[in-house]
Computed example of a mutant assay.
Amino acid sequence: MIHFRLRDFAWVLVYRLLAPCFGSFGKRVRLEHPRHLTGARYMHFEDGADIQNGAYVIAHPTAGSVPEVRFGRDCLVGHELHVSCIDRVVIGERVLLADRVFLADNVHEYEDVTRAIADQPLRPVGAVEIGAGSWVGENACIIGCRIGRNCVIAANSVVRRDVPDHCVAAGVPARIVKRYCPDRKAWVRTRPDGDFAE
């Protein structure tokens, strides 16, 4: 077990030495043994960001678009994160991401049925933003939408629409199942449209 800790520590040191290659690289950043990083100059790591091993992050510029991938202050990102960015993917301050979370602001075109999807261009579908203090469960996919502040996204959810602040969303496709009601000072179940059920 000790050799894995030493390996991770060594990778953290390596990436500190490579910090000038990134868009920005704050203090106390821990980038542990990523699997694949493309477009490092478009990646920004704020103070205290902790990205555990196996991350696969692609920031790919396209015509007229300069991508930005941002890891907010003191965020904690689990193992095997997968990010595909052609415009903007932002993980906010003190966000928790569980293992194997997928974030994308694009999809492959699939209009031309005579060509393999892999040979068709990427199409932007909207920036991905995860608001400060939120928690995203294991295996969740967030594609082209905004998650508000202090939200919970349940494990295995697929989120394609914006989720307002202080909500719990779950399912495929994800829907809001609870919201915090400031009048009652409590979490309250919601209807499928996100309005309070009671």
Rank of each mutant, 00 (worst) to 15 (best):
V95A: 00
V95Y: 05
V95W: 03
A98H: 06
A98Q: 07
V101K: 10
F102H: 15
L103N: 09
A104L: 09
A104W: 11
N106L: 10
V107H: 15
V107D: 15
H108G: 14
H108V: 05
D112L: 08
V113K: 15
T114I: 10
T114K: 13
T114C: 08
R115Q: 14
R115D: 11
A116E: 14
D119E: 11
D119G: 13
D119T: 02
L122C: 08
P124C: 09
G126F: 01
G126M: 01
E129Q: 14
E129S: 15
I130K: 09
G131P: 02
A132F: 06
G133C: 07
G133R: 10
W135K: 09
V136W: 00
E138G: 02
N139R: 13
A140Q: 04
C141Q: 15
C141V: 14
I142D: 12
I143Y: 07
I143V: 12
G144F: 00
C145N: 02
R146D: 07
G148I: 06
C151V: 08
V152F: 09
V152A: 11
A154Y: 00
N156G: 00
S157T: 01
V158P: 04
V159D: 05
V159I: 07
D162A: 11
D162N: 11
D162P: 03
V163Y: 04
V163W: 03
P164I: 03
D165H: 07
D165V: 04
H166S: 14
C167I: 06
V168Y: 10
A170T: 01
G171L: 01
G171S: 00
V172I: 06
A174C: 00
A174R: 05
A174T: 01
R175S: 08
R175K: 11
I176Q: 05
K178V: 08
K178G: 07
R179L: 09
Y180K: 04
Y180E: 09
Y180C: 06
C181H: 12
K185S: 14
K185E: 15
